[in-house]
Amino acid sequence: MKTATELRLFMVVNAEAFTRYEDHEAGIYLQVYELIQSALEEDENPIGLIQDYLGVTYTLGDSINELTSFLFHTGEMMAALQDLKENWQVLDKTLPEDSLMFGGTSKEEATEIYAETTLRNYLEALSEVTHG
Results as ranks from 00 to 15, higher is better:
Thr57Lys: 12
Asp23Trp: 07
Val12Ile: 13
Ala80Gln: 00
Tyr21Ser: 09
Glu25Cys: 08
Glu25Tyr: 08
Ile36Asp: 00
Thr74Gln: 04
Asp62Ala: 08
Glu25Arg: 14
Arg20Pro: 00
Glu25Ala: 11
Ala79Met: 08
Leu7Phe: 05
Met78His: 04
Thr19Leu: 06
His24Ile: 12
Thr57Cys: 07
Ile64Val: 15
Ser69Lys: 09
Gly27Asn: 12
Asp62Phe: 04
Gly48Glu: 15
Glu41Ala: 03
Glu44Asn: 11
Asn65Ala: 06
Tyr53Met: 10
Ala79His: 01
Ala26Tyr: 05
Leu49Arg: 03
Gly75Trp: 00
Pro46Gly: 06
Asp52Glu: 15
Val13Ile: 13
Ala39Gly: 08
Leu67Arg: 01
Gly27His: 10
Thr68Asn: 07
Leu71Met: 09
Gly27Asp: 12
Asp52Gln: 14
Val32Thr: 09
Glu25Phe: 06
Tyr53Val: 06
Ile36Val: 14
Asp23Glu: 15
Tyr29Thr: 07
Leu40Glu: 14
Phe70Gly: 01
Ala79Arg: 02
Ser69Trp: 00
Leu40Lys: 10
Asn14Tyr: 12
Phe70Tyr: 14
Thr57Ser: 12
Gly55Val: 10
Gln37Arg: 10
Val12Pro: 03
Ser38Cys: 10
Glu44Ser: 07
Tyr53Ala: 09
Met11Gln: 13
Ala26Lys: 14
His24Ser: 10
Asp62Lys: 13
Glu66Val: 15
Val12Lys: 04
